[in-house]
Simulated assay, not measured.
Amino acid sequence: MKQANLAVIMTCYNRRNTTLTCLHALYQQKNHCDVYLTDDGSSDGTAEAVKEEYPEVKILQGNGNLFWVGGMHLAFGEAIKNQYDYYLWLNDDTFMEANALSKLLQIHQNLTEQGYPDSIVVGSTKDSMTGRATYGGAVKSKNWYSNKFEFLQPSSIIQKCDAMYGNCVLIPKSVAAKVGNIDTAFVHSLGDLDYALRAGKLGCQIWVAPGYVGTCTKNSIRNSWADTNLNILERLKKVLDIKGFPLKSWTIFCSRHSGAFWIFYWFLPYIRAIIGYKNLAISPTFSEDINQTNSEV
């Protein structure tokens, strides 16, 4: 396979050591890449440390209010201007295995040869301590009444899926040309799920790579809207927060992707925040980034 022209898309905020560890693992890959990193106003010296250790990284400066979607939108948009063959979304707390990038690229080449060039390839991650799967792809629940996306356990073979976490995602230029950038109608959550669903509607395929591409610790539900140790008012405040289901973004998402009866799904996270959601094996809204709590669609 010829050397691919590849851009890596990242955003970070006040996780200097984590960001540096992620970049270290990235630069161990055999494939050359250009890194576009949005530093969203970090106060811990992240940008300065990256400049010192990895001067080739293209750092874009945020104002502290971009969050995950805004940061990724800024970096992705800058990279798209240069028309790369591939774009890799990479969370700065995702540490890639040495052959991960080659693996994802080879899978896309195989899919292209099989007649699926407009394919997104999703890499699954696992917890470095427990070995349990944490992030990757997801499939829509088969229950007719459900708008839930369930995590798809990686296997030894490639699997088709409906949606994805944005932790480690390979997007070819043909998909980027069709779908465009991450939609800033979303701020912190829902942007990656929306991107996947828009891609599917435009005829693109989404596939989960076999096995794991690296490690990433799963975010805790503690102190989130799903934490039943908090009182009702605290949970309501958090579910309406940028890192939960803010009214405007959630309304756009539901009206866009939840069918004619979307208003019924719109109420669910707020009802669950009020009554206390007991089932904490939650399927996520898939924006797994800077200190974000998972939640169910």
Rank of each mutant, 00 (worst) to 15 (best):
V187T: 12
C33L: 07
S119C: 02
R16V: 09
A209S: 11
T134H: 09
Q3G: 02
H73W: 10
A209R: 05
T46M: 06
G203R: 11
N231E: 09
L230E: 03
G41M: 06
E288D: 14
Y87G: 05
C216F: 01
S174I: 04
T21H: 13
S141P: 02
L60W: 01
G45P: 08
A209N: 04
T215D: 09
F267Y: 09
K142G: 15
Q205I: 06
C254I: 09
A177K: 15
T46C: 05
A75C: 05
L197E: 08
S283M: 03
E296Q: 00
A177I: 13
R132A: 14
H32P: 11
W225G: 04
T130V: 02
T184I: 13
I158C: 10
Q159C: 04
I232W: 05
I59A: 08
A281N: 15
K201Q: 09
I206K: 11
F76E: 01
W266G: 00
I107V: 05
L60F: 03
S155T: 15
E113M: 14
A75G: 07
N181E: 08
Y13S: 01
A281V: 11
L88A: 02
K243C: 04
H188Y: 09
I221A: 14
V297G: 13
M96L: 15
K2W: 14
F264K: 07
G214L: 07
G136L: 01
V297F: 12
S141T: 10
K148S: 15
V169R: 07
Y195V: 02
M10C: 15
S156E: 13
Y165W: 09
W89A: 00
G259W: 00
Q205M: 05
S141D: 01
S249R: 00
L104S: 06
E113V: 14
R256T: 11
I221F: 15
P117S: 08
D194N: 00
Q106W: 15
G62I: 10
M1F: 15
G77Q: 02
A47M: 00
L20V: 03
F253A: 10
G77M: 08
I252M: 10
M164I: 05
I282M: 11
N167H: 15
W68G: 13
V8T: 03
F267R: 04
G214H: 05
T18L: 03
E53C: 04
N82S: 13
G276E: 01
S174M: 08
N14C: 02
A260G: 11
A47R: 09
R272S: 06
L66W: 14
R256G: 09
N223V: 12
V179L: 02
N65T: 14
E150F: 12
Q114M: 07
L66Q: 06
T228E: 10
P269W: 07
K238C: 03
N99S: 08
P269M: 08
A75S: 14
K148Y: 15
N82A: 14
I263G: 12
Q29P: 00
W266P: 06
A100L: 01
W225L: 07
G45N: 05
G71Y: 04
F186A: 04
F245C: 03
T293D: 14
K243F: 11
P246Q: 07
N291S: 14
I275T: 02
L37A: 10
